[in-house]
Nucleic acid binder design. Structure first.
Lengths: 124, 124
DNA sequence: GGGGTCGATCTACCGCAGTAGACGAAAGTA
DNA sequence: TACTTTCGTCTACTGCGGTAGATCGACCCC
């Protein structure tokens, strides 16, 4: 099992791929440029680096590379979340949730859904 | 207010400082070496880098540097947690907590305490 | 006083993310 | 056919975290 360390932009690229299932470098550049401009060659470089570490693969469709994610979203979410949980909160889920409730504004509706979630979890 | 990005070892150094209030480089080296060996000069280099970005300061006590943290623990916790929340969970506290409950094993006792916490939060 | 110890500094290197220009090939277009 | 666009590759550089050896100065002990 890989413990994939992804940079900030690399993660954004993966997110575009997860969302679309597969995309050309051009599509990714366009998507990322919506929020902040980035050179096409930068995206291509990062895609090659991602491929080098096994995060993505590509196939050629009409002379153009179509990239597909190899890392699963759940896998990456897992890794980075557990990493934070361990390093910052000493592994305490309670500590982490407590911090979230204290420092982030959570709507009453979200709180309700959280309570439901926890109840369901307790019944398992 | 700084939103400082700290590396892995840099964070460990800060944690030693938060725990002790203030410490010499030697003390930090010893503490960190308990888990994995690290050269004293590495710690010193990182301390200088941390000082350069305003994360720590030092005073001289009997010809030895005693370092003190300038970044507050809460501040760093805040920054990195919100960073993850935003980048991975699109800002959804619910999404993040749901992931934690699903992928981390949470004891019944912890679940109870979490429910209590949420109830308290709902009453505010 | 001379050698060992300890602290701080200097310097240098590696790895990786991010950045992007330059270049060449191919394909469409006027 | 010649121009333009698009794509992928090559190359290179910056910044930063992490790594640590080499060195210098001060202090302590015999």
């Amino acid at each position: 099992m890989a413990a994939p360390r992804l940079g900030k932009v690399q993660l954004q690229i993966m997110q575009v791929l997860w969302q679309s299932g597969g995309a050309t470098a051009r599509h990714i550049t366009d998507e990322l440029s919506k929020t902040s401009p980035i050179a096409h060659s930068t995206v291509q470089t990062l895609l090659r680096k991602l491929e080098a570490k096994g995060a993505v693969t590509h196939e050629i469709v009409e002379r153009t590379f179509v990239f597909r994610p190899l890392y699963q979203e759940s896998e990456v979410t897992e890794t980075v979340t557990r990493d934070l949980l361990t390093r910052i909160f000493g592994g305490s889920v309670y500590g982490m949730v407590a911090h979230l409730l204290k420092s982030e504004s959570v709507s009453p509706d979200e709180l309700r859904r959280l309570r439901t979630l926890i109840d369901k979890e307790g019944k398992k």
